[in-house]
Amino acid sequence: MQSQDDVVARTRPSRSPARLLGALAVVLALCALSFWAGRITLAKPQARTEAPKESVIVDVTEQSVGRSLTVNTTVTTPRQPLAPNTMAGTLTALSAQDSYAAGDVVYRVDNHPVRVIAGSIPMYRDLAAGAKGADVTALNAALIAMGHLSGEAGETYTQATARAVRAWQKALGIEQTGSVARGEVIIVPSLPLAISFNEETAVIGNQLAGGERLLQAPGGDPQFVMQLLPQQATLIPNDTVVTVKYEDHSWPAVITETREGEGGNTKDLTLRAPDGGVVCGSECAVLPATDTQYLSTAAELVPPQTGPAVPVSALTSQPGGSTEVTVIEGEAERQVPVKVLASQDGLAIVEGVKVGDKVRVFGGSKEGA
């Protein structure tokens, strides 16, 4: 018969070596985790040290700063017809000049050159030796302007006039008659003049009988309008000085009116000369002979300022509100108060230092003269 102790011993769970090793591993892991946590919790925080700012030394130089916005100005010019053609034949060529002076060829009929001169009456007759009148005066003035005749432009067609006409005809490569037929010359009010062609009547190959209005010229003052996006218009107040440019010509202008553009998507800024006149003044004749053209225009948002210039990073603000730069003199340096006159794109024009001084610029990577 089994004893009670034997029965109890048999009912107890047995502890295998594997289970004992697993329990030991868990205990060791918990100890290691507690040790690591204690290290992290008890370690002292490391202090952050800022590296000193590096700097460079630069020379004070004379510079100009300012700000402008470049946009297009639309120029529209009304047109009026000039004197009609009086030569019959086939229109064989049209000139392609922006502006015409005395004696210039404007078109050809049967390959014969039709020229332009300035005068007070139209060319209504043939001109030859002995003729008198305002049309002869216009011819003599043109011959003088071209260098074929000297003296004053009289109203009489003299032998000198005839010789000058033959010289003109020789230069053109046409028959040297010494006289001018009615259809060979067009008289216009003034020269130089931006002459354009009527697109309906001035077509090469057209048969001309006389009386056709082939030529047209500006019939009033050109209108200058800057068309801007609303965002651009907010940058340009009405007192902004603008400069309109065409080739080597520059014309100052002011804004006299601002209105909504067509469709409400633009702002139209009307320009006039500072004295209230037309922008191009006495030089409007140099503009191309087109109804509409676009000219580059610079709007001066910040007036240019010239003087000693330093990088903005050389400036330091003081508690009292003043501004200083560090001027280097040999091995020594001193703080110099300055007045900032203008700044743009990291450059400042200042009073208080002179061109050639050396100043310290903070935030650089190396030192140099």
Rank of each mutant, 00 (worst) to 15 (best):
T77P: 01
P81W: 02
P84R: 03
N85V: 04
Q46G: 10
V58D: 02
Q63F: 07
T41H: 14
T77G: 04
S55T: 10
A43M: 09
A43C: 06
A32D: 12
S68R: 08
L82Y: 02
S34C: 14
N85K: 04
K53T: 15
M87T: 08
L42I: 15
G89P: 00
A43F: 11
V60M: 03
Q97W: 09
C31S: 13
P78Y: 03
A37W: 13
D59A: 12
A88W: 06
T70D: 02
G89C: 04
G89S: 02
P81S: 11
E62V: 04
V56E: 07
V75W: 03
T41V: 11
T70A: 01
A32T: 13
G103Q: 07
A93T: 08
K44A: 12
L42G: 09
T74Y: 14
L94M: 00
D104C: 01
G89V: 03
V58Q: 06
T41F: 12
I40E: 11
T49F: 12
N85L: 01
A47M: 13
A96D: 07
T74F: 11
W36M: 14
A43W: 05
T76I: 12
A93S: 06
V58R: 02
E54G: 01
N85I: 00
I40H: 08
V75S: 02
A83Q: 00
W36Q: 13
P52R: 14
A32Y: 10
A88R: 10
E54A: 06
T74H: 09
G89W: 02
V58Y: 03
V56Q: 08
T74A: 08
G89E: 01
T61A: 09
A51K: 07
V58S: 06
A37T: 07
R67Q: 09
D59L: 12
T74N: 10
T76N: 10
L94H: 02
T77K: 01
L69Y: 00
A102S: 10
T61H: 10
T77A: 04
